[in-house]
Design a protein around this nucleic acid. Structure first.
Lengths: 340, 340
DNA sequence: TCCGAGTGTTGGAACGATCAAGGCAGGATG
DNA sequence: CATCCTGCCTTGATCGTTCCAACACTCGGA
């Protein structure tokens, strides 16, 4: 009735417990025929090592913790969904499972980490949203908790942990260049408030591409909240005051807002005014006529994170350099035709 | 350096291990002053019970497994994101964590379950996508694995497990009635292929509302793949052949397709032709002028699932009835004005 | 014949918690 | 006064695995 144990297998195969353990963990220590015999017993009984017992003995759970934050309703971004999936898949291949947790109600973000850490429920954490400055990384470092972070250590200067990040500036630069190549010369930026490090980074990519091409930027930048309505009104103001022929936005949410304003004015997104978003959300993929958008290589990020994680757990002392990945541009209808 | 154990706390507090254990698990067994003394020692050392050791002894991991499937790119649906978050939150409140897993590459969906089950890594599973007929439920039942399902036991007649589902027909009925009240009488259905039980269920809600109002349905139903393009072409045909004034769709993805076709024809979604989607995706929330959509009460579903899970793990033999939840309608621009 | 190296295998202890049973006061009961 | 009970706490065993050190066995060399 109850699950077979190591001892059951050992008895059936006529060997000792340790031999079965070796068959599972160090097969090359056994003589071929013994291994085969043990293997058959394992198959016959359907034996799988008991996780709890193994965890207890080896002091490892093969679990990695990931904190998830509430879904932002009303925005376009669904980065988390794709990222979580990639992470689960890649860590699964490395023999790790992903354990999700949220903040306990009305508590600070660190209680979740603390609980899992102290109860030795997970081997390591994957930290995201480092740009929010919640001090997750610093806190974990203090406790010597193993973790890798998806996102640069923005808020932690003396950080010494592995990280993987995506070069947002490269993304917006890509987007801006794409529009310049299309023949645009008045390209506006709709981004986030100045206190958003991520927003400022993405803005800098637009700025770089514009300067490089010798195009004007004054009066062409706007900084607002990440909401559809904010995008709408920013675009309204921008169209009235600066007459841009294209918009580069810090998010698909803002880009959608811009598109609303264009529709409102009877302007055709793409043909009349070009728009580029950021995140390649499902909104960008499905909205008419298709929103050109910067796509983060989340699968790749997951691969790198798991790689870093494995390295970290194998040799905790030495930490490799951070990994910076470059996003790609998904070109769709709102890019519009060439204007030359 | 290493984490404090029960024995450490016991020594510091001057009591036995068992007493500390009781202080943690059955506080009311202790005299008040002893409890206080132990509690202080616990706080002082920052003690948390070791998960692995506890799991081993109690034969429970307080983990529940959830299988996730790849994100469908190019569609609007993001049900999983919201659901996962709700589930993590609600199960966290009940003392459970959620363990994610995916199918091992090119393997059948059941290997993931098998592995976690046999290694006693999780206490139970939450099964989703039962409408796909992958036989997850039947397979788990066979192994006597505890699980609850989000979705009726479509594919398993003699199922005896707790389940929670959302009444899709009630959703589309709600949507259709809403349009009827607005004064529409030629309301088309764009749904999925006949082999989709979910699609047929949603269709039945439309049918019911139409019959109830004595409205015609012949020539007004279309069954296609769940893709934006399919929605486009279905709408094109429908407009040409049946002249509907409103569309009810099985998904936001299809609804977006319908909206594309309307835009293509110079028709105003809402003012000229009404459209209602299903899922209240971020696309529905952000697209212009706002897509009216049926919203699944996923938070509520998570609550019910966790409740069922707790019941199941407490008394595995008795199984309560399934829980059916009713969706709501999020009214937005594509509903259009009253036509009376 | 015996030794020592090289393989494989063995039983006992440990990981850190909970379970089951038992000890020990002190008051109620006959 | 002996007995029983009740409340509170302690002791030893146990969950299933891996680590550790010691132990057989084979086989070539002295």
């Amino acid at each position: 009735m109850s699950a077979p144990t190591l001892a059951d297998v050992a008895e059936l195969a006529g060997v000792s417990r340790q031999t079965v353990s070796n068959a599972v963990n160090n097969p090359d220590l056994l003589r071929a025929d013994t291994l085969a015999r043990v293997q058959q017993a394992i198959d016959e009984l359907g034996y799988k090592p008991n996780r709890a017992a193994r965890n207890l003995r080896t002091r490892a759970s093969h679990l990695i913790g990931l904190r998830i934050t509430p879904v932002q309703e009303g925005t376009a971004s669904v980065v988390m969904d794709r990222f979580v999936h990639s992470l689960v898949e890649k860590s699964g291949e490395a023999g790790y499972h992903v354990l999700l947790f949220t903040d306990a109600l009305e508590d600070d973000p660190l209680t979740g980490y603390d609980e899992l850490l102290r109860s030795t429920a997970v081997d390591a954490f994957v930290v995201t949203d480092t740009y929010l400055g919640e001090g997750q990384a610093a806190w974990l470092r203090e406790r010597r908790a193993p973790f890798v972070s998806f996102g640069r250590p923005w808020d932690d200067d003396n950080a010494r942990h592995p990280w993987v990040d995506i070069d947002g500036a490269a993304g917006t630069e890509l987007a801006t260049r794409h529009l310049i190549e299309k023949g645009h010369d008045r390209i506006a930026w709709i981004g986030w408030k100045k206190d958003s490090v991520l927003g400022e980074e993405r803005r800098s990519g637009w700025l770089r591409a514009m300067h490089e091409a010798g195009l004007p930027t004054t009066g062409l930048a706007s900084r607002v909240e990440d909401a559809v309505n904010s995008g709408c009104s920013a675009a309204r103001v921008m169209l009235a005051e600066a007459g841009p022929t294209a918009f580069v936005c810090a998010s698909d949410t803002l880009a959608i807002g811009v598109m609303h304003t264009l529709a409102e004015r009877g302007l055709q997104a793409g043909d009349d005014v070009a728009v580029v978003g950021f995140d390649d959300s499902q909104v960008a993929q499905t909205v008419w006529p298709g929103l050109t958008s910067v796509r983060q290589p989340l699968e790749e990020a997951a691969v790198e994170l798991v790689k870093a994680l494995e390295g970290l757990l194998a040799t905790p002392s030495q930490v490799g350099p951070g990994v910076m990945l470059t996003p790609t541009l998904e070109v769709r209808g709102t890019s519009g035709p060439d204007r030359r």
